[in-house]
Amino acid sequence: MLAYIVRRLWQIVPTMIGVILLIFFLFNVVGGDPAYLLAGKIANPEQIANIRKQLGIDEPYYVQLWIFFKQVVTFNFGASWSTNEAVSSIFATRLPASLMIGIPLIVIETIIAILIALSVAYVRGSLTDRAVMVTCTVAQSISILVYIIVFQYVLAYKFGWFPVQGWGNGIFENLFKYATLPVLIALAVSLAPNIRLYRTFLLDEMNQDYVRTARAKGLTENRVMLVHVLRNSAIPIITNLMIQLPGLLVGLFLIERFFSIPGIGREVILSVERSDFPVIKAITVYVALATMLANLAADLMYKAVDPRVELK
């Protein structure tokens, strides 16, 4: 087990190097010279040379790459180009807000999606099943932007049930006041694709022989569905869940932007708008790392759910 984890962690290294190379290529080679951008409109050559020196982009590429590599390893990306806030402090202060939306979302969403998927898979082919599937398809086709605009306008602005936007200091204040509507909207958006997906996973299992056996033994339908079928569909469901996890950090960027929630996703948009390269670089690299770790965690969880799985 430990050997497996170590080996898998070791396998992350080449991919991580690749990610660093890709980001470096994008921002330092393709991205070109940001000095003009930062110096403003009335910059003299001296200032520009100064800025270049400050940013270290007057060095040859291999030196820049080495600097970037060191930054990744030491978690020290320097300061943001536009606000001069340390990138590490940006991470530390923006992460809680993102998590406060993301964690309730993924918990509630998974429970609801599995419950609905179970009930429609059980009555597969019926009118209910088809109605739910059509609703999901239509719901999926409406842009997330529309959900946000309409929900924010109707529920927060017109009815005043929720604050239109904002973020507080206390955990409970944020969780129950400011995060409620964003989570609700994110739920509306992400439930539809997940119900469809989970339904397919469950249907795959419901056709298996062991389900017939379980019924033949005289088990109750509840037991067949909730214990036998659900447990066997756990692997694809967990995979899907773990794939979604790192995306949550940045995937809620639209919601964070609309509701002025100081999270990582909003920071991504802001830094793209301001051409704030260090912040985007740092976020991309670490989210990629988080994705790889989440994949590893998913593989380890397979073993916990299904003892037959062998970790190779």
Binding site: V19, L26, G247, G251, V287, A288
Partner: peptide, 11 residues
């Protein structure tokens, strides 16, 4: 390994 939308925004 890079979330799709993040890569799009970075580019």
């Amino acid at each position: 390994s890079i979330p799709y939308i993040l890569l799009v925004l970075a580019i």
